[in-house]
Amino acid sequence: MFEKIEIGSTEDDGTGDSLRDAFTKVNANFLRLAEYHANLAAQLGDARAATSPQWPGEFVPRHVTEHAPDIIPPMLGAIWVDASNRSVYVSVGTQTKDDWVILGESGK
């Protein structure tokens, strides 16, 4: 469930969320949206794979969290999203945790 940002009864009446609390809720809501999107994309990909023999196999494993990868990649091409640093990693192997390569990073 998404978190509602309380805006108060009237402008600047002090009954709404503080700016920090409001943006904490915004960040949590965007993380939920990213997770929902990843799950939906996986379901659609898996459904396509089940109905089309030309589809190249199961959907690529993906993980959305708030930290860098800390496990060995499950397969070549797996995707890991670190929402806290807005970083995306892709696996280039399946032997060690070092097989994750960062694709993009912003906000630092």
Score class of each variant (00 low, 15 high):
N27V: 10
R32Q: 13
N85S: 10
E105I: 06
I72Q: 06
Q54S: 14
P74E: 11
A42S: 12
D98Q: 12
D46I: 03
V26E: 06
M75V: 14
D21S: 10
V64G: 04
N27Y: 10
L31S: 05
D82K: 02
F2G: 08
A50M: 09
H63E: 11
F59V: 10
S52E: 15
G57K: 04
S18H: 02
F2I: 02
N39G: 14
E58Y: 04
V101C: 05
R48L: 15
R86M: 13
L19Q: 05
L33I: 15
K108F: 10
W55C: 11
D82Y: 01
H37A: 15
V81Y: 15
P74L: 08
D12A: 09
D17A: 01
D21T: 09
S106G: 15
V60P: 04
P61G: 05
D46R: 14
H37L: 14
V101T: 12
V101A: 08
A41W: 05
K4D: 10
D98V: 01
Q54L: 13
G16T: 04
E35S: 08
S84V: 04
A78C: 06
A83R: 05
M75F: 05
P53V: 12
V81G: 02
P73I: 06
V64Y: 02
S91P: 03
I7A: 06
R20T: 12
G16Y: 04
A42C: 05
S91F: 01
K25F: 01
N27E: 15
N27F: 10
H63P: 00
D98K: 12
W55F: 15
K97W: 00
S87P: 01
P74H: 07
T94C: 10
D82Q: 02
A50V: 02
A38G: 07
S52W: 10
L33W: 06
A78R: 04
A22E: 01
P61S: 14
H67I: 00
P73A: 06
G77L: 04
G14R: 05
N85A: 13
G104M: 10
A50C: 01
N29P: 07
I102A: 08
S84L: 11
A41M: 14
A78L: 06
R86W: 11
G93R: 08
S84K: 15
P73D: 06
E3K: 09
E58G: 12
H63R: 15
A38D: 13
S106E: 13
H63Y: 13
A42M: 09
V26P: 01
T65D: 14
Y36G: 06
H67W: 04
G93T: 09
P73S: 08
A22T: 01
I79R: 13
L44P: 00
I5F: 03
P53F: 10
F2R: 12
Y36T: 09
A28Y: 01
G77S: 05
N29L: 05
I5M: 08
D13Y: 05
P74I: 07
A38T: 13
E3T: 04
D21A: 12
D21W: 00
N85I: 00
T24F: 03
G77M: 03
V81I: 15
G14K: 07
E11I: 09
L19D: 07
I102Y: 00
K25Q: 02
G93Y: 09
Y36P: 00
A28Q: 10
V26S: 02
L33H: 06
M75P: 00
D82P: 02
A41C: 12
D99L: 07
N29D: 11
D99V: 07
